[in-house]
Structure formats: structure tokens, C-alpha cells
Amino acid sequence: MPLRDYPIRRLTEDPSNVLDRGQWPASLAPVAQVLDQGLDLTPATILVGENGSGKSTLVEAIALAYGLSAEGGSTGARHTTRSTESKLSYHLHLVRNAGTTRRGYFLRAETMHGFFTYLEENPSRTGDIPFHDMSHGESFLELAVDRFRGDGLWVLDEPESALSFQGCLTLLTVLKDLLAAGHSQVIMSTHSPVLAALPGAEILEAGPWGLRPRAWEDLDMVTNMRSFLESPERYLRHL
């Protein structure tokens, strides 16, 4: 097997802690597929799909199984408010590539306000950014630029929720540069055609079928957005 320089090469179910397939989230087809068949990961994996399809559940579980904080941060973050995450991480086994970094960071848009407060109350040795003095999108980007450095596993859950079109392009640049430097891995769930266009990423579409590889130009969110921008009145007539 060739040597790989990114942290996680495969997801499998922990054989000593099998999850009941009738129990959520194993009842979601993409989750069941990962548990039943495993999933090979590339340096960049992007999960797309409708709300409730299971993509964020998988991304969250990977982050937790890696040792990252459920509400965002690195392996050292201890911020927690109300626990809402699934138990999937306890049933996942991450097959790591030998000799790779154990660093990482998890960013999820829905918990950022509380996470910013945690960071301001627990500044790093060099001080920290006044996140609450910025807009939500500005602070999100500032955090990504500041923390996403060097080698690591960079996990993002629907980051476009905080970002403008230009903000998505900026984040795309950060992720592209990390991958180009080598030894890093990006796992992201998104509804954004811009972020899904990350160069070299494998795109997996989540749905009732499970997970299936898709080309960017064939994604429903790409064709639907293109059609809407070309003729919004066709859509608005049917709302």
C-alpha cells in the first residue's frame, strides 16, 4: 500500500461497538453505508446533499472520533454548552495513515457564537482575536485564516452559512493552499457550489441511496443554481 501523508485514509465501524442498524443515525442510508462497507478518504472529501440526508452527522462524527470538540475547535478545546451530537463517533474507527500529524480543527457555523465567547475567555498564549467585535462572517474567516495553518485535519460543517460569495472564495483559497502544501486533509459538508469546487476534492452526494461520487458539474445544487440565475422568474412563478 502506498504511503499517504494525510491523517485519515479510511472509516470503518468499530467491530467491538456495533451500532444497531434500526437506531438513528444508522437508519440514515449514508451512515449505514459507511458502517457496512467502510469509506476510503482522499486528501479532500466534500459531502453534499439535502437537509437531513446525514452529511453533517457524518462530518461531526469524524471530528469527534478524531478527538476534536463537538462545538468547534482543536483537540485541546473543551468548550461545551448543550450536547446534541449523535453517538455515531463512538461506533466509528478511523484508520490513520502512519506517521501523519494528529493536529486538527473543527469549524461548524451553527455553534460559532458560543465558541467565539469561549475563545475570548480562554485566549491563546499570543492573545486572541476580538471575534465579537466583527461581523459573523468576518470572525469566521478570521478564525479559519488564523487556525488553519500547517499540517492537520481540517473539518468544516456548512461553513457557507456564515459567508458571503466573496467570503466563500476566500475560504476556498485557504483550503486550496493547505492542500497544495501537502500533509493536510479537508473534510467538509456544504450546500455551496463555490466551496464544492475545491480543486482535487472527491465529492460524495448523500441521500436515500447512501453516498455516491458525483462530478461538480452534475450536482443538483450546481445545475439548479445555474438555472435560477439564468431565469429566476421561472422559479418565482411557482413559489
Rank of each mutant, 00 (worst) to 15 (best):
T126R: 01
F106G: 02
L94P: 04
F116W: 14
F106D: 03
D146G: 07
M112S: 00
T100C: 10
I129H: 02
L94H: 11
N122A: 15
R125W: 13
E120P: 05
F115C: 01
L141M: 02
R108A: 07
H113S: 15
P130Y: 08
T111I: 09
R103T: 15
R96G: 05
F148Y: 15
E138I: 04
I129W: 01
T100I: 08
M134D: 05
G99A: 07
F140I: 06
I129C: 08
D128P: 02
G114N: 11
R102H: 06
L94D: 01
R103C: 05
R125P: 09
T117F: 00
R147T: 06
R147F: 06
D133W: 14
R149D: 04
R125H: 15
L143F: 07
R102P: 00
L94G: 03
L94A: 06
G104T: 06
R102M: 03
R125C: 13
G104D: 02
G99T: 03
T101V: 14
T111H: 11
P130Q: 10
F140V: 06
N97W: 12
A144G: 01
N97L: 08
V145G: 01
G137I: 09
L107F: 10
F140H: 14
P123G: 07
A109L: 08
Y105A: 07
V95K: 13
H113Y: 10
M112H: 02
L94C: 13
R147I: 03
S124P: 05
M134N: 09
L141T: 03
N97Y: 08
E121T: 13
D146N: 13
L107D: 03
D133L: 11
N97F: 03
F148T: 00
H132M: 05
